[in-house]
Design a protein around this nucleic acid. Structure first.
Length: 331
DNA sequence: CAGCGATCATACTGGGGCCC
DNA sequence: GGGCCCCAGTATGATCGCTG
């Protein structure tokens, strides 16, 4: 094995283990301990944060800020990477916002000049836009960390009923339309609920009274699967799923097509009118009230009754807000 | 006991020159 | 252009004394 190849593989091995002795590596690579020592010195000079501990049971350690081995990209891959990463810059908040900027700068800096020029030209013509929301999300990283470590949190959440305390265990976080969301198991309701991260006013690790729920098999992508495939909560099958049925005009169908998760459940008639039948969670009621209200008369919710009454209430408030009684009234 | 640094001997590699 | 040889530079391994 050539020295360069050995150095490359050594860097990968060192990053994987994080703790090792020179003798272990010497046996693995079939060279002397002295050679491994010299190689480690080279990696150290390249910036790999190594730390040696002396004495019995000593050895080498890689500090937390470890570096990844060099990776070769084709020009097209580099362009794809750059724009995938650049799309993140439009988010108001990210769980790793500072790193996203430094990584992008680093990546751009090491590209050849002609590739940089291509990127510069493309930047003037391509953008992955996301609306920037004003709401702060100070607990985003804590929610993400809790989902990674499978740890329950005690949060203060600003719900419809006002701020309240509850214990949750996050499944993960996702961003949609500029907002961050956190599906989580709620210990109080004993089922999975969706929380908007900007409405989490306070968050801290929960105490002993809430032993962690095993969510290792339940990923954030599972959350988007059709409801029957979601696992039941530890407190029993309590999804609180409701049948939603909406009649849509031709224009309503067109506007509904914007929402990707409606596509398969949307049945379109010969005249272009549509019927939407999906199952929704009770905690999504707020979202659907606002959404179908925005479609106006192009969407008429048939069921569930609670959503119908919420829409009636919303329309009534809207009507009052526009000065009821000053005109002839609604038709 | 494990790593560091220094020294020395040996093996390997690659560039340059020469010849066919 | 390809093959061969020489030689300087580099890589490697062994050893020793030292540190913590």
């Amino acid at each position: 094995m050539t020295k360069s190849k050995r150095l490359m593989e050594l860097m990968i091995a060192v990053n994987k283990r994080r703790r090792f002795t020179v003798r272990e590596l010497a046996e693995e690579f079939g060279v002397s301990t002295r050679t491994i020592m010299r190689d480690l010195q080279v990696l150290d000079e390249l910036g790999l944060p190594l730390y040696a501990e002396y004495g019995p049971h000593g050895g080498y350690r890689v500090l937390n800020e470890r570096l990844l081995p060099p990776i070769m990209f084709s020009e097209q891959e580099a362009l794809a990477m750059f724009f995938a990463y650049q799309s993140l810059q439009h988010y108001g908040a990210l769980p790793f916002s500072e790193e996203s900027v430094t990584a992008l700068k680093k990546f751009y800096y090491y590209l050849p000049d002609d590739t940089k020029q291509k990127i510069d030209r493309l930047q003037e013509r391509v953008v992955f836009w996301t609306p920037k929301r004003q709401a702060a999300v100070p607990h985003l990283k804590l929610l993400l960390d809790a989902s990674l470590q499978g740890r329950p949190l005690r949060i203060t959440y600003d719900s419809r009923e006002g701020p309240g305390e509850r214990a949750i265990q996050p499944i993960g976080v996702y961003s949609y339309n500029g907002y961050w969301y956190c599906p989580a198991y709620c210990f109080r309701k004993q089922r999975y609920l969706l929380f908007r991260v900007d409405r989490v006013l306070q968050a801290e690790p929960a105490g002993e009274e809430h032993p962690a729920v095993d969510l290792s098999e339940y990923t954030i992508t599972d959350w988007f699967l059709p409801p029957p495939q979601q696992p039941p909560g530890p407190g029993g099958d309590a999804h609180g799923l409701l049948q939603l049925e909406v009649r849509l005009t031709k224009d309503g169908v067109r506007r509904c097509r914007w929402e990707s998760w409606f596509q398969e459940e949307l049945v379109v008639g010969e005249e272009g009118e549509g019927l939407l039948r999906i199952r929704i969670r009770h905690d999504e009621m707020d979202y659907y009230t606002g959404y179908f209200l925005s479609l106006g008369a192009d969407a008429v919710v048939v069921q569930p009754p609670e959503l119908v009454s919420r829409l009636r209430e919303a329309v009534r408030k809207l009507y009052d807000a526009y000065g009821a009684g000053e005109t002839a009234g609604p038709p």
